[in-house]
Design a protein around this nucleic acid. Structure first.
Lengths: 206, 206
DNA sequence: GTCTATAGACTGATAGAC
DNA sequence: GTCTATCAGTCTATAGAC
């Protein structure tokens, strides 16, 4: 895996490797030396593509941040609050599934948090984090609602990167996250079938 | 704040400072030099109290881990699954409130994760993480249930350490986390009063 | 584009004086 | 219990050859 993929350009391989190591060891824990070693090149070669470590992190995070900005923008164009929330949730879940490892870092790694905050604040229209929460909880939420939204958003983010769900394919994971997210946020479930069996007269194992 | 608290022993001050800096910068991001500086002593003085950085982290995490082990133990003694879940949730929320900054690290920082895993596996009765999940989702949960539990547990953990809820006093935070947690996990709410107004015309609860 | 070599700062950790 | 001084190792980052 170290060598043998000459058709994929080095910059892409570098970002993939960096993301993997960042999510595995954290931003401070993953050194440029580790990245270079996994890539089969030297540190100097890495520095040819990016001037600083921070720049690598920004490049790793950029696509997800862009998608996030767009989601919030699109959602805020919807007329009803319900539609806003639905669009934001669907978009957020899609983001999570597409960038499974990354979104976990957004909520946890202090270095990434700073990068996110920087990008949020310099985004076209002000603090995105606040706008995101507003989409879900309304403009002046109760403490309980604020906590609920916080739990669901943070929880969804970490669930995407959780090892126990790593073998779920994208569509399956997306569907489940959407269903659970909707239920937890109080949205009606999709028609299909109750997710939880939870009748418990028969089958009380142990 | 650096000096001026001679009555509190240095070891305790050290652990407090370490926890604060760990949660602020992550385990790798917070150096022993930073800890020493905040304490107003030198690195060598820190090394008098702890042989390694890892030992500091273990000492920081120890009380919470102990409490966690006890919660799971107590919960598994309850007879009905509902009582087990209630006890585990109440205990977990109490743990979160008491160690607000710490529990967030448990779910995020790779170094802390390793420490937790180590403690889990050497704990009196096997893998605690699995037993914890079983208490909430049953022995053979559906994917949807597993995801729900994951989201709620991880979400609760990060909510405790979130800056936006930092000014809530312990009792208020505990009550809200409990209520939200119960609701999200499908437990009946406490009698008192609905936290969320959310009847839109006439309370059509789920 | 990738390499060697190196600068300069910082890391965790140790020895030994007070 | 805290200090100074120092270690070996790693870190990010740069210079310059090929």
């Amino acid at each position: 895996m170290t060598a043998g993929t000459p058709d994929i350009d080095t910059r892409t391989r570098l970002l993939d490797t960096a993301l993997k190591l960042f999510s595995e060891h954290g931003m401070e824990g993953a050194s440029l030396q580790m990245i270079a070693d996994h890539l089969g090149v030297t540190k100097a070669a890495v520095y040819y593509h990016f001037k600083t470590k921070d720049e690598i992190a920004e490049a790793v995070a950029a696509p997800a941040i862009q998608q996030m900005i767009q989601i919030v923008h699109e959602a805020s164009l919807k007329r009803s609050r319900g539609a806003q929330r639905d669009h934001a949730l669907a978009g957020f879940v899609d983001l999570i599934v597409r960038h499974r490892m990354l979104v976990g870092l957004f909520n946890s790694d202090p270095w990434f948090k700073r990068i996110i905050d920087r990008a949020w604040q310099t985004s076209p229209r002000g603090d995105l984090r606040t706008r995101m929460k507003t989409l879900f909880a309304g403009p002046d939420p109760s403490i309980a609602d604020a906590i609920t939204v916080h739990i669901v958003l943070a929880g969804l983010g970490t669930a995407g990167g959780a090892p126990e769900f790593a073998d779920l394919d994208d569509d399956t994971l997306r569907q489940h996250l959407l269903d659970v997210g909707r239920r937890l946020l109080g949205r009606p479930r999709r028609s299909r079938q109750p997710l939880q069996k939870r009748r418990r007269k028969a089958a009380s194992p142990r």
